[in-house]
Amino acid sequence: MLTVFLQFLFSGLTIGAVYALVGIGFNIIYNSTSIINLAQGEFVVIGGLLMWFFSESLKLPFFAAVLCTLISSGLVGLLIERLTIKPLKNPDLLLMIMITISVSIVLRGVLMFLFGKEPYVYPPFTEGEPINIYGAIIQQQTLWVISITLFCIILLFLFFKRTITGKAMLACAVNPTAAKLAGVNVSKMVMLSFILSAIVGAIGGMTITPISLMEYDKGPMLSVKGFCAAIMGGLGSNRGAVIGGFIIGILESMTAGYVHSGLKDAVALVILLLILFFKPSGIFITKSMSQLRKF
């Protein structure tokens, strides 16, 4: 009984960690541009598939492969921003939504062209015996996923709170004009936010692929679930996105385990709609805070 429960809990935490990273990716771009980048899930796929390419196809050593993956994902983020977001002159909201959707379609197309439709997998980061907790089998990779996610979150927290660049990025979101007047290079910050967000997504993809495989069309679902995680804690709040991500991951794996595996995706969707409909400011946010937000 407990064994099964723990097993589901850990698989929920694992996938939840990825949702949390996608959610944070949403936040990073949203916080500096007020854009919701619906191509966020594609970054995860890119991370997973590129890691496979560098480590399995090119046979690079582990750390070299990781570094190459991170750099090339960052480049993808950079290209997206410079080629599609920056050239837009006085875009309206509708256009912003469309453009990130169309970018996600292009990315999916490129991925399918390069990698085909079959799923990819590579060995876990460390070989070794799974850990046994009350009979539940926990693979070492699971621990990697969770700890790397937590590490990322701490780094990002320090980045936004302690560094000038991080603070400048936040300032752009609150008031781009004021930030510009204060000497912040807004355009550079927007670019940086796309790079950072692509890297964060790619980290999620790199760590999860040995457990759940990766294929070219996983992006949209990851985007939806990551977005769900992000709005659960109130869009823009990284702490909220982490909690939201884990909650969704756990609920999803419990539903798949105890109810019916086909309904796995429905859980996140239903939660998403419920939050959007009844508390779009996020469920961890107080009423007075939510009044300050725009929808």
């Binding site: 919701i36 959007l276 929808f295």
Partner: peptide, 26 residues
Amino acid sequence: PALRLKGHYLAVATLGFGEIIYVILN
């Protein structure tokens, strides 16, 4: 319920609706 939502939020809400129908059909 979607009346209060605009832009991105509405886009994601309608997307979620479509996907739920898809899951139901499946």
